[in-house]
Design a protein around this nucleic acid. Structure first.
Lengths: 342, 342
DNA sequence: CTGAAAGCGCTTACAG
DNA sequence: CTGAAAGCGCTTACAG
């Protein structure tokens, strides 16, 4: 532990005085500027260390006209708190936080009132950060595009919609929706529902995958089996209940998230239906709890922590002035008991 | 939407020039300094608005020698990623983030390598923030105390251990442990296990509550029924399995978190035991999924989002120089089916 | 009520 | 290889 010795070093000037050099030299020495002699550099660095001094990053950032802050914006309906506590988000946040820390960036956390993303411009979120990571697009593709057009460093976790001006990192949503549906079809299920809202591009893509798989079996998506399950779980329960009680035939459900899948299973069981015997259920995300539900959940795994890292590399790349391409991460079907295959 | 009109205003000087006043006056006007004439103030503010100019907070903070940043440190064993994705933490984080935003503070997210909390001193986490919120104490009470002694603005979510120099916000851990155990006793259970690590003060307090309730029924805690369930779920499963297979009598389990409880239920079911018939299970936290497990989880609810707000009020109070007291939030037993009462 | 000046802690083009 | 000087965008004690 570097304990301060005698003199208190509060800033570069103090250090320079102590070493008998100028502030400029001290600055260069601590920043490993190669123009400085090795002797001077080592002396200054040793002195700094023994006195527990390190450069004031805020001052440095200020002088260099940067912030060393990346903001992370969760695009959520604030109304539905449940969504924000979806374990999926914390995994993502963890990956982002770790990657940023490695690059000496700070993370500024925000969640956008989804109706007014543009407000972020007049906000610390964008004004005092070097770049922004958006988690999800919600229905705000247009506004995100506008933001991107004033040459913001930004990246979006979502779906690569057409005519976008921003960089996107995505999972293979269409592939995931297709894989889970096909899995159910192969197990002999034919009355497969789709549970979840498709009012955002990611889920819409999953739904397309779902339709594609059905199509291959000569089926089409019965709109009655498409249920807009809200994120708020109590309401979700009601919606599912209504559908089941309305007497629509149903032997399987493809859900847009594990959280929705767990709510679905719970509701079905409450209605006296067995999972997977009566209704097979597949989730999305593979949150850590998915393996511990009853029955354990078949789901689509996305490597979320890795996604977080990619998002970070992507904004930082933009800050360096690089041209950053979109990225799509593979999804993987994880088979457990809830689909009736285990 | 305030669109920039003709001139580009990049800083206070530009604004002052445009208004024909000095930088000093412009600064005072925008900061509502009462010494400025109403006319001047309104003129400057209108001008700023119409040109989409707002004060550069970083520069302001720098000048005022503050950061407007509060760091939040999750005290986790980094080894066990599972713990970090416990929904409990995201709820907490959400509460903190919202409260900070209201006060115009930014949130800097970090997780501490738990062995070396003191390292945070030489780190952006503490050096470039106005205060720090620690989530959990782990086994680092001593180090936290040391940090507190160099007059850091800090608050800890954890347990008010003796001889601490830092401010603590806590749930009623002893009360929670007592309430859940008593609940099981009243339902006739007598062989009640305690599942979870007690190597941190919070869980130790819950365990005390557990022992107290047992004591009131003339029972004592059979050490064989106290299982140090790790946070990592696959290992948790093994540990629980071992215990059950070792043939120790067991008709109920008090768990230190809902996540542990869900893993417990899942493991028991896998072993052919019925919950709650054979073994009743009680969790802790009331995460949103708790109501949707099978069976739904009896648990101790803590108002986590509210806790987040209190933590924020507490650090900000310290920054204002106030004396801030410890706070304890009530806990509430939420009865569902897993305990065999529903 | 307003302005000129100093200064927060740094970095870097320029000069030597 | 090193230093003196300017300046990043603000605020505020001091003077008027």
């Amino acid at each position: 532990m570097a304990k301060p010795t005698d003199t208190k070093i509060a800033n570069l000037q103090d250090l320079a005085d102590l070493a008998g050099v100028s502030r400029a030299t001290a600055s260069r020495a601590l920043n490993d500027n190669p123009v400085i002699s090795e002797k001077t550099r080592e002396k200054l660095q040793a002195l700094a260390k023994s006195h527990g001094y390190s450069i004031n990053q805020k001052a440095r950032d200020f002088r260099l006209q940067r912030t060393s802050v990346i903001s992370v914006v969760f695009m959520l309906d604030i109304a539905s708190e449940q969504h924000m506590s979806d374990p999926f988000f914390l995994d993502m946040l963890g990956g982002i936080a770790d990657a940023l820390a490695e690059h000496n960036y700070d993370l500024l956390l925000a969640h956008a009132p989804v109706e007014d993303v543009l407000e972020l411009r007049n906000n610390r979120v964008m004004q005092q950060s070097d770049g922004t990571i958006f988690i999800g697009q919600a229905q705000q593709h247009g506004q995100l595009n506008e933001l991107a057009e004033d040459d913001t460093n930004m990246v979006v976790w979502g779906y690569p919609v057409r005519d976008k001006s921003y960089v996107v990192v995505s999972g293979d949503n269409a592939g995931g929706g297709y894989a889970s549906t096909k899995h159910l079809l192969e197990l002999g299920r034919r009355q497969i529902a789709f549970f979840g809202s498709v009012d955002n591009p990611e889920n819409a893509a999953r739904h397309e995958g779902y339709l594609k798989a059905l199509g291959e079996y000569g089926l089409d998506g019965n709109p009655e089996r498409m249920v807009d399950v809200p994120f708020e779980m109590h309401r979700a329960r009601e919606v599912i209940k209504e559908m089941v009680e309305s007497g629509i035939d149903l032997d399987a459900a493809v859900c847009v998230s594990d959280v929705v899948a767990l709510a679905t299973i719970s509701t079905l069981q409450e209605l006296g239906l067995e999972v997977p015997k009566d209704v097979a259920v597949v989730g999305y995300d593979d949150i850590s709890l998915a393996a511990y539900s009853n029955p354990p959940l078949t789901t689509i795994r996305q490597n979320i922590r890795h996604a977080g890292r990619i998002l970070v590399e992507s904004v930082l790349g933009q800050i360096q002035g690089e041209h950053v391409p979109d990225t799509m991460l593979a999804s993987e079907l994880v088979i457990r008991k809830s689909s009736g295959a285990g």
